[in-house]
């Protein structure tokens, strides 16, 4: 479904990505792991149109992505950005409605609002509260819910566990798995390697802008070198 080929990207003169190729299939749950500065966020920025790659192609369902953020959303890709990026002065409901901004089917949006409130009961209770007044965990729930509101075929998540208590991280990942089981493909960028490897089907290990390793998570979990480098065992 998503195919990234030989992607290069840089900031000024500094190369962040040096020829990355990866793929996400229909309904797949894929993780991109790696240390700080490996280029994980840049990869998601390139896909969602926030950063323009210097070389390489990104295609989705066989079509090249336009590189214009709102058009990427229209084509069926939702980004749950790093740091949640809740719009603080808008209510929870308004944040969700912005998530559905590209859609024109009012009835479907209404149904999806109900679906989201079922998935995240806390958001239902806080509909009229300002997004900025939610706790970190609630904001992450809202960010995921807001991503769902565009009814994406593929959801990109940038470090959803960042700054959250372990129990909340578990909740978020449980919900991601539910979302994945209901048919939405997921591409997640994480530093929480252990958690991501236990949830995703496949993973790519990124290091200084190149893919160092890739494979099924069940294999990577038993890769001594990797476990040593990232899990410290």
């Amino acid at each position: 479904m998503l195919r990234v080929e030989n992607l290069h990207a840089s900031y000024g003169g500094i190369k962040a990505l040096r020829g990355i190729s990866l793929e996400v299939g229909d309904h797949e749950f894929v993780a991109v792991l790696g240390p700080n500065g490996a280029g994980k966020s840049t990869l998601l920025k390139c896909i969602s149109g926030l950063h323009h790659p210097s070389d390489g192609t990104i295609s989705f369902d066989g079509n090249r992505l336009s590189g214009v953020p709102h058009k990427v959303v229209e084509s069926g890709i939702a980004l749950v950005p790093e740091g949640r990026q809740i719009l603080p002065g808008l209510t929870v409901l308004e944040n969700l409605r912005v998530g559905a901004f590209t859609r024109k089917d009012r009835l479907g949006v209404k149904q999806d609002l109900n679906m989201v409130f079922e998935l995240f009961p806390i958001l239902g209770q806080r509909q009229t509260q300002l997004g900025g007044l939610l706790s970190g965990g609630e904001q992450q729930m809202l960010a995921v819910a807001r991503g769902l509101m565009s009814r994406p075929k593929l959801m990109l998540l940038d470090e959803p566990s960042l700054g959250l208590a372990p129990i909340i991280v578990n909740q978020v990942f449980d919900i991601l798995q539910k979302i994945n089981h209901s048919g939405t493909a997921i591409l997640i960028v994480e530093q929480n390697v252990y958690k991501a490897l236990s949830m995703a089907e496949r993973a790519y290990i990124l290091s200084t802008g190149t893919i160092e390793k890739s494979g099924a998570c069940s294999d990577l979990r038993h890769d001594d070198q990797l476990v040593h480098a990232y899990l410290g065992k």
Binding site: G49, P69, P81, L87, L90, E94, R97, G99, F101, T102
Partner: peptide
Amino acid sequence: TKFGLGVRAASSNMVTASVLGVDV
């Protein structure tokens, strides 16, 4: 209105509004 929602979203955070689908 939806137009107003788009304006408020964009004035709150233009980058976030754009990745959510607002043609800023």
